[in-house]
Computed example of a mutant assay.
Amino acid sequence: MSQLPSGIAVVAATHYTSPADQLMRAFKEGGQLNHAGLFARLLWSTMRSAQPPLPSLAALVPIPSDILAAQRRGFNPACEIAVELSRWMRLPVRRLWLTRTRSGNSQKSLGRVARRRSVCDLYVCDLTLPDVWVGLVDDVTTTGSTLEAAAYALRQAGVRGVVGLVGAKTPLI
């Protein structure tokens, strides 16, 4: 478990290094949807042994995909992991709690500052949400900028707190 500068705890199923990076690419770009279950099981195992223990979560909220990426793939990787994880955790997946405001360029080639800028106001929640802790699910995190931007939108809508739950975390260089 790690922590973002904003204080958000992040639990990752694995590091984005070999062989997990190959499995993630096969999942995201090769349509190997069964890998979502693998990442979810690893994530669930890591969550159960987290120290300090995680707060009790009321729901899982997947990071919305870029519309062009979702159309190209035919699915949202974060949502697929959230659905599989919900089976282990027996929690609802709240797909509509978070909305993406615009399409954006890939963050793969961006540095930390550019990533933070690219996600500014990228996510919104137009609902009034309950005062609960939620698991914010993403496939891969590098700098945590996406998680922080999405968590901000959820907290503005009323959630008490957010725990980042990711399939893989890029090691800091």
Rank of each mutant, 00 (worst) to 15 (best):
S2H: 10
S2F: 07
Q3I: 04
P5G: 07
I8R: 01
S18D: 10
Q22K: 10
E29P: 04
E29I: 06
G31Q: 05
W44E: 13
S45H: 12
T46C: 05
M47L: 11
A50D: 09
Q51M: 08
Q51Y: 00
L54H: 08
P55G: 10
S56A: 14
L57F: 05
L57G: 07
A59G: 03
V61P: 13
P64M: 01
I67H: 04
I67P: 13
A69L: 04
A70L: 06
R73C: 10
R73I: 07
G74L: 05
F75W: 09
P77A: 15
A78K: 10
I81G: 09
A82R: 09
V83A: 14
V83S: 10
L85S: 02
R87Q: 14
W88L: 15
R90V: 14
W97F: 06
L98W: 01
L98G: 09
T99P: 00
T101N: 15
R102H: 15
N105W: 02
Q107A: 15
S109F: 04
A114W: 09
C120N: 08
T128C: 00
L129R: 07
P130E: 09
D131F: 03
W133I: 06
V134L: 00
V134W: 00
G135D: 13
G135K: 01
V137M: 11
D139F: 07
T143A: 03
G144N: 07
T146Y: 01
E148S: 14
A150P: 13
A151M: 01
Q156M: 10
A157E: 02
A157W: 01
G158N: 02
G164S: 07
L165T: 12
L165N: 13
G167F: 08
T170P: 10
T170H: 14
T170Q: 13
T170Y: 04
